[in-house]
Amino acid sequence: MKIVKIIVLVLLVVFVGIQFVPTVHNQSERTPKADFMLVNDVPKDVKNKLQISCYDCHSNNTQYPWYSKIQPGAWFMENHIKNGKEELNFNEWDTYSNRRKKSKLKSIINQIKDDEMPLSSYTLIHRDAKLSENEKKEMIQFMKQLRDSL
């Protein structure tokens, strides 16, 4: 009994302790001119879905959920955002060469089609980020069209 209490206490202290570890917040007020939605003519539905389902990790501006304010949720988020932006940053779209745009679009299409993106760990809490079959189709169709126009 005593041991259980000690363990709980230790866990609590650790939990409190890690709250003091700082994290970098991915937020910026301005949208760069190179942004995907600014340089491309994106239909409204696709735009909405991109913002909700993709931009949290693939842009310079994250809509932070409540759990990201508490560790270890914040670390989890921070890591996802770092990796996400490395792979693809919609805010920097127009800085990519045509060749890279095409290969990014190809990856976007494949990731959506294979249900690899948005990440299931993300949609678990962000229910609204989940893409329905219809939304997937719409998004893929747009991305294909865009790729062919490049």
Binding site: Q19, P22, H25, R30, A34, E92, T95
Partner: peptide
């Protein structure tokens, strides 16, 4: 303390600038 820290969001203005120039 954590939620206070939130208010000090990172303003990466200089970064944003950079991107714009790059894009041009």
């Amino acid at each position: 303390v954590m939620s206070c820290k939130d208010n000090k969001k990172e303003h990466d203005d200089s970064d944003g600038h950079h991107t714009e120039m790059d894009s041009e």
